[in-house]
Design a protein around this nucleic acid. Structure first.
Length: 289
DNA sequence: TTCCAGGCGTATC
DNA sequence: GATACGCATGGA
């Protein structure tokens, strides 16, 4: 993992990192693409970039930009703006999973034909290793919901609390006091999760060390957490790459490409493979219409 | 208007 | 254990 510190920025040259494919693929809900005409773009007025995003890991903000390097197949210059080396090493290296070799992963995955197509379709996808509580809470909100509306609910939540709320804060709320979220039937689930964590009935650090089956069961004692949300909390919040969330889109993938089971080449890394498959089925088919 | 969205709780068999 | 249905909200 090579990087350099330049003024107040951290610079990476990377072949397996695309901001659109990683930050806008339904695994995290707080990244916003910066419109070049918007006020946010002012901070980048002296920067040469193709695309940029602003967002958060829990309550640490980041402005990140990408510029394709001409003549170097697929490589981009990624800049983490106004980021100290200690924040980079302490937060962002893990968040963007920078110690994992995605070229090697994709190569292994590509012995399967569908996986090969999915990796080729969006080669810049990376897993985002999110905060445990942020991931759990976000995916409780995600159920039977669409991505733009999930983002809206989480955005209203963060605006209201001045950042992503702690479970202690949410444990004090009621369905009525959370009406401003317009989260629908999910409000009571958010509160139940917050109360179980706040009271100590459940502990996400403990759960993260359990074997997969015990961790699932423990998470599913929360109202509104079923197999899919538990799997997402484990994958995105606790880095269990062998967790495999199955939502309506992945059900379509399985029905269409894997009626007889998942291929061996993704064993142990099912969760990461799932991210390529999810993006592939959601975007490829709409693009073909 | 109806259908659908990164599902789950509940009732019923 | 399997299956059917309702659920809040809002965009297509």
């Amino acid at each position: 993992m090579d990087y350099k510190v330049e003024d107040n920025d951290i610079i990476l040259i990377h072949s397996d990192f695309d901001l659109d494919e990683t930050l806008d693929c339904g695994q995290a809900f707080r990244w916003e693409r910066i419109d070049k005409e918007s006020k946010d773009a002012d901070a980048l007025s002296n920067i040469d970039y193709d695309k940029a995003y602003k967002g958060f890991r829990l309550n640490t903000p980041l402005l990140i930009s990408q510029k394709k390097i001409e003549g170097n197949s697929g490589a981009s210059k990624i800049t983490l703006h106004n980021t100290s080396e200690s924040d980079f090493l302490g937060i962002w290296v893990q968040y963007f999973d920078l110690k994992t070799d995605y070229s090697a992963l994709k190569k292994a995955f590509s012995s399967d034909e569908t996986m090969s197509s999915a990796c080729e379709f969006a080669p810049g996808i990376r897993m985002l290793k999110q905060d445990k509580w942020e991931a759990l809470c976000s995916f409780i909100i995600s159920q039977n919901n669409n991505i733009p509306r999930i983002k809206g609910i989480i955005s209203r939540m963060c605006e209201h609390y001045g950042g992503f709320p702690s479970y202690e804060e949410l444990a004090e709320e009621t369905v009525e006091s959370l009406a401003f979220l317009r989260a629908g039937f999910r409000a009571k689930y958010i509160i139940d999760a917050a109360q179980k964590l706040s009271s100590g009935a459940l502990d996400l650090d403990d759960i993260s060390t359990m074997d997969l089956e015990s961790a699932r069961k423990s998470l599913m004692t929360i109202k509104g957490v079923g197999p899919k949300v538990a799997e997402c909390a484990l994958l995105y919040g606790m880095y269990r790459t062998d967790a495999f969330p199955v939502d309506v889109w992945i059900k379509r993938v399985i029905q269409k490409y894997y009626p007889d089971g998942l291929p061996d080449c993704i064993k142990g890394q099912e969760g990461i493979a799932q991210q390529y498959l999810f993006h592939y089925i959601r975007n490829k088919e709409s693009r073909e219409k």
